[in-house]
């Protein structure tokens, strides 16, 4: 039986908002499906072979840590581009979205070059204008709405392939009702939560898709605590 391999990229630098939880969640959902799953924790100076993995996860980090990561990640630009084109799964949360765009512009208008895989870029906004709050989105991928949290100091510019539509909350920039980025199996969003923990139906969508693509069995099972937590939250009208 094939083992699903997950690479948690820069686990020690891009893990500012409990994003370890997203990887734990993926692992748990695969285990519930009786699939074999392995997680490798990878960081600066590790040799990352992008052919070896089915899923790549990267979470958010401080500005300083993002610079350290970019410094290391740049050498993999071609490998990452190929992996995305080859339909490998990339799950990217928080400000890690910025790594895959053209550049990030800081408050002094200085540009930090990024991987330049997608045409969007991030622009830092003043701390007083930070985007903070609970979010409620929808997506064409699943029936259930998406919940989560944002706490960010950047906006996204030139986003042409959004992942979610805003029901309540803020989009990729303040006047947008679209959020996130999707291209092939690249799923990127500013949402924290952790995203996959708080949205088990979305996680299940990804897990089911990955299992089917690998000719592995899938059985619907929505009984674990994360589903109850999701339903409790979504049914509580005072949630936000």
């Amino acid at each position: 039986m094939k083992t699903i391999k997950i690479a948690h990229l820069y686990y020690d630098l891009m893990n500012l908002n409990g994003e370890n939880g997203n990887v734990l969640c993926l692992k748990e959902h695969f285990k519930q499906q009786k699939a074999k799953v392995e997680v490798d924790l990878l960081t600066v100076d590790d040799k990352i072979n992008f052919n070896n993995y089915d899923i790549f996860y990267i979470g958010s980090g401080s500005k300083e840590n993002m610079k350290i990561v970019l410094n290391d990640l740049n050498k993999y630009q071609e490998n990452i581009k190929k992996a995305i084109d080859d339909n490998k799964y990339f799950i990217v949360t928080g400000n890690a979205l910025g790594l895959f765009g053209e550049h990030i512009i800081d408050l002094d208008n200085k540009k930090q070059k990024c991987l330049n895989i997608f045409k969007y870029y991030l622009k830092e906004i003043d701390i007083e204008e930070c985007i903070v709050g609970d979010q409620l989105y929808k997506t064409s991928l699943i029936e259930e709405n998406i919940i989560g949290f944002q706490n960010r100091q950047t906006i996204m510019i030139n986003n042409e392939n959004s992942l979610f539509t805003v029901i309540e909350g803020t989009g990729y920039k303040k006047d947008s009702n679209e959020e996130g980025y999707k291209y092939n199996n690249f799923y990127g969003t500013y949402l924290l939560g952790p995203l996959l923990v708080r949205n088990p139906y979305f996680t299940d969508y990804l897990v089911k898709k990955i299992l089917k693509e690998n000719n592995l069995p899938y059985k619907t099972n929505h009984s674990s605590f994360d589903y109850i937590a999701y339903n409790e939250f979504i049914n509580n009208k005072n949630r936000i």
Binding site: E19, F149, N151
Partner: peptide, 10 residues
């Protein structure tokens, strides 16, 4: 009044 639960995973 926010419901940020991400810290539970830290």
């Amino acid at each position: 009044k926010y419901n940020d639960l991400s810290w539970l995973y830290d």
